[in-house]
Amino acid sequence: MAEPVQLQRMEPAIDVSEVRFRYSASGPEVLHDVSLRVEQGEYVALIGQNGGGKTTLAKHFNGLLKPVAGVVRTMGVDTRGPSVAELARTVGYVYQNPDHQIFAQKVRTEVAFGPHNLKLPPEEAARRVDEALELVGLREYADEFAFSLGRGLRQKLAVASVLAMSPPVLVVDEPTTGLDLQGSRNILDLLGRWNADGRTIIVITHDLALVAERVPRTVVISGGRIIADGATSTVLSEADLLGKAFLRPPQVTRVAQRLQKFGIASDVMTVAQLRAQLRLALGE
């Protein structure tokens, strides 16, 4: 008798279902009925103005906050059960300010903190630390004094210290704050390489130009609600919708939209795309 074929169903990386949240019982509701599904291997940007609920939502992903109503599942696990430290195995969370987490003297010790907390065997931990430092480009700084690194390098160190735990889902809160364009690009490229290995990445950011260049899916949060969710080129070209969250499409998209009557597409996201469109329109 043939066994019925069991379909290997892939759990979504993050499954937020009708979540409501308030910080205190008497306080205002800050998330209203939010539902969001992120599949494994996706690279998603979470955008919106300050106080809109981005970080509040993201803190639900690793159980730092528990929903007042509704359910959050990460890789199929209800976040209300395990502790944050247990969920850290599945969801890595990089904080906005690296100075909130750097405490060790040496760069290497700092990165090893997470793997040791996960009780990995020493050789495995050392291998992961080396890999993470290599990936972020801090290899030659491994024995440097952690606090003496510049802002951009400290940000990379913060990312590396979470990457070393090798979580299948990674949440990064405003990794580009205080970084120049080169530093911001480096961080997003780094996240892109990590994503290419099949890991899920959710990045919270204000930098729409970089999102347009590098992140395929965008979710807009405003006033505690998800007001848009889709392909970055679609979401970021809808000026009216972005306006509701006090955002504007990237500059190059706005230029393209002004040139629409000359046959330029309205969902241009990068300078290279606009150049190609212009060439086409000019019949080159």
Binding site: L64, V84, A88, V91, Y93, Y95, H100
Partner: peptide
């Protein structure tokens, strides 16, 4: 407030002082 943020950041790196 800083202490709360730092504690959260370290919890997210699997620090579990209670255990």
């Amino acid at each position: 407030a800083e202490r709360i943020t730092i504690t959260e950041a370290q919890q997210a790196r699997a620090l579990d002082l209670k255990r």
